[in-house]
Design a protein around this nucleic acid. Sequence first.
RNA 1: GGAGAGCUGGCUGAGCGGUCGAAAGCGGCGGUCUUGAAAACCGUUGAAGGAAAACCUUCCGGGGGUUCGAAUCCCUCGCUCUCCGCCA
Length: 424
Amino acid sequence: MLDPKRLRTELDEVAKQLARRGFKLDVDAVRALEGQRKALQTHTEELQNQRNLRSKSIGQAKARGEDIAPLMAEVSSLGDQLKTAEQDLVKIQTDLETIALGLPNILDASVPDGADENQNVEVRRWGEPKQFDFEPKQHFELGANQDWMDFESASKLTGARFVVLRAAMARLHRALTQFMLDTHTQQHGYTELYVPYMVNADSLRGTGQLPKFEEDLFKLNNEQGYYLIPTSEVPVTNLVRDTIVDAANLPLKFTSHTPCFRSEAGSHGKDTRGLIRQHQFEKVEMVQITRPDQSWQALEEMVGNAEAILQKLGLPYRVITLCSGDTGFSAAKTYDLEVWLPGQQKYREISSCSNTLDFQARRMVARFRNPETGKTELLHTLNGSGVAVGRALVAVVENYQEADGRIRVPEVLRNYMGGAAYLA
RNA sequence: GGAGAGCUGGCUGAGCGGUCGAAAGCGGCGGUCUUGAAAACCGUUGAAGGAAAACCUUCCGGGGGUUCGAAUCCCUCGCUCUCCGCCA
C-alpha cells in the first residue's frame, strides 16, 4: 500500500508515477472522495467530542448526587446523528481503502521504462551457452525416457499442468531442493523455515495478492476460506505482520522450501508442454526483512545468492531488470534470473528478486523501533526465488544431456544423489 | 469432538458501567552518584489519525449489540491454556 499521506498531498505525482506501469489512477474521483472523507471525519469527530463531554458531565453530576434528567434530555438527539455520521464515514473510508489496496507500488527511478517483457534490460551474463554436437532435446523429451516425467498419469490423477516424477528424476528434484537450502543456510546466512501451505486472507492481503489477484489463487472450500499459497513469500513475509521487530535482530533472513499453487488463469496456451508452467511446483524462497536504509543493498545481495545457486550448478544465465510495464504489483524493482535452456534455445525465468520497500510492510503493519529516534518505523521487505526447483530441474536436464540421451549429474548434486554421475 | 479458564501497552500483569489510554513491575530513554560500569535514587516512556498550536478523535483479540457513557455487561467469531475423548 502507498503512503496515504502521500496519496492526499501528492496525488498528481503519484498518478504520474503509476502511469509508468500503464496504471490509470482516477485522480478526480480520489480527490472528490478525499474531500468528502475529510468533511465527514471532522463532523463525526466533533459529534463524538460532544457525546464524550456530555457523558462525562452526566457522570460527574451523578457522582455529586444531582438530578441528571435535564442533561440526559440534552444528549438524546446526539445518538442518532452520531450513528449516521459514523456509518457514512465508515463507508467512505472503506471506498478509499479499496482504492488504496488496488494501487501498485511506485517504481524505483532506476527501473527502465517499457511496455512489456520485451523491453526488460539485461544487466549481465554468466557462462556461455554450451555448444552441442547434436540437436539438444527439450526436457520433456528427455523425461520420457524411463517414464521419468509422466504427464499422462498426472493428468489422469488430477488434470492438466501437473506431473509425476519417477525414480532418479524424483531424486534429482529432491537433491536440488536440499542443495539450495543447504547453500542458503550454510553459506548465505539464511534461517530455514517450515511454514503452512495454506494461509488466510489477511496474509494474502499483507503481501499484495489480495484483493486484486484472487483469480490467480486456489481457494479452499472450508469454512475459514483458506487459500493454497502461490509462493512461500506469503507465509514467510507475514511472520512480521502486526509486529514490532527488535532493531538488533535486523536484517531477518529466511529461506523456505514449499510447494506453490497457482491457477495460471489467463495463461492458456502458454508453455502447455512440460514442467515450465504447472499448477503445483516447488520453490526455495529467500525473504529479507530490513531497515529502510538497507533494502537496496539487500536486493543486490539476494540476487547474488540466487546467482550462486546457478553458478554452482554450472548453468548459464543472465540477469535482467524488469521494465516498468513488467514489474509486479508489490515490487519497486525486480531482477529476474533467466537460465539458458538448450532445448528451447532461450533464456527462461528461473528466479525473481524484488524489493517492495515499505509497500508490503504498510499493508502488514510491520515495524521496528528505530534506536536513533526511539520511534516505530515501517520495515522494508524483499523476496526472491533461490531458485524455482522445477525449472532448475528442467535446466539441469537440458544442459547436462548427452548425445545418447543420458543425463549427467552436476558435481555439487552428487553427494545428494548417492554419488551417481548419471541419472539411472 | 466434549468441559472449563483466559486474551489489556515493547514484556509481565492490575482494573466496582462514569476524570481509565488504563495501576504496578520489568525493559527503554534522560539524570544524580562513580575514574568508568553495576547497584541505588530521581525523572521520563503506548500506537494511529487530524490540527500552526492549545488540543481533538480512535484503539484493551476481531466483529456486532445494550447504554447518555463499555477494558468492564450481552452476542458472535478467532486464538491460547487445562482436563477428557479420538488420532498420524
